[in-house]
Design a binder for these strands. Structure first.
Length: 296
DNA sequence: AGACCAACCTGCTGGC
DNA sequence: TGCCAGCAGGTTGGTC
């Protein structure tokens, strides 16, 4: 469940069903799922067993739950990224194991267990050190996330700083939107949606973006992700689900992504799909034109 | 230093 | 029916 709205849906589920519970047992079924853990699966399990998981937090597409926060231990957190196909499910222990079950956490209360299920294993879990900015920082940030920018739904996101960095980048606008060190949480779907709403071509050089255009783009990214979050995120199939295995409804509200050959909702021109960086870009060839000042 | 993209995986779909 | 190419919501390490 890849992009910000889908990850936020999962964060809320973890906060409701997992936070406050004590880990009884950790089972790592596939070593690739803990490949970022220095010390491997044994270390991962040792750093969680017997510990209490705190409130679920998120930055961009990353999730984490502080470990033993209530007990005054402010040093580590269970960190997760869902990659392309990862799921975090809160599942009754009686439910048979999923085909791609990678990690299982059992709890001391004997209730529903937490399962990390990931078909392609691009996602991962790890226990990471929490870094604190100073006495005023009550929450901290996992060390591995030092290079991840705040996401646009974060109240502390720096709009002015984003505009400046965007203009300074020697790149094109969709690359910039997907650059998690510039702005996090935006992926291929919401990048295409924000660009469509802004009438911007994905290959437009960032240096040609005026401040009002950049502001419009940012506002549209916020709007489309907020709207998606309100209906549980985007899901085309059962691969992208919340902690209870349920899909969101935003796929029916997409204006560009996945609509190749279908009419643009603004002008009726068929939406086009272009191969782009080993993936796809969906856009309206009439509403979203490459500006003339550069040949592409 | 900064930009780029191949590689990491599994499964599904559509064309031949 | 079978096979194979192409595609999928992301990130990174290595290269230039």
């Amino acid at each position: 469940m890849p992009e910000l709205p889908e990850v936020e849906v999962v964060r809320r589920g973890l906060d409701r069903w997992v936070s406050g519970r004590t880990v009884a047992e950790v089972e790592v079924c596939h070593p690739r799922a803990v490949r970022r853990q220095t010390g491997g699966g044994l270390d991962f399990a040792a750093r969680l067993t017997g510990r209490v998981l705190g409130p679920a937090r998120r930055r961009g597409k990353y999730l984490w739950l502080p470990v033993d926060e209530a007990a005054g231990d402010r040093r580590s957190a269970l960190l997760g990224h869902l990659g392309m196909s990862g799921q975090l499910l809160v599942q009754d222990p009686a439910v048979p194991d999923e085909t791609h079950l990678r990690i299982r956490l059992r709890f001391t209360d004997g209730g529903r267990e937490l399962r990390f299920v990931d078909q392609r294993t691009f996602g991962h879990l790890a226990v990471d050190d929490l870094l604190f900015d100073g006495p005023g920082d009550a929450q901290g940030l996992p060390a591995a996330l030092a290079h991840i920018a705040r996401d646009p739904l974060d109240p502390l996101f720096d709009d002015a700083g984003f505009f400046t960095a965007l203009r300074a980048k020697r790149t094109t606008v969709k690359r910039a939107l997907l650059d998690q060190s510039l702005i996090s949480g935006v992926g291929n779907i919401y990048a295409d949606e924000a660009l469509w709403r802004s009438k911007l071509h994905y290959d437009r050089p960032t240096e040609t973006l005026t401040r009002p255009l950049a502001a419009t783009l940012l506002a549209n990214a916020r709007e489309v992700m907020t709207a998606a979050l309100a209906v549980g995120g985007t899901s085309f199939d059962s691969l992208y689900v919340n902690v209870n295995g349920e899909s969101g409804y935003f796929s029916r509200s997409l204006d560009a992504y996945g609509r190749e050959g279908e009419p643009c909702y603004r002008c009726g021109t068929p939406i086009r799909r272009a191969a782009w960086m080993n993936r796809s870009s969906y856009f309206c060839p009439r509403c979203q034109r490459v500006p003339r000042q550069r040949a592409y």
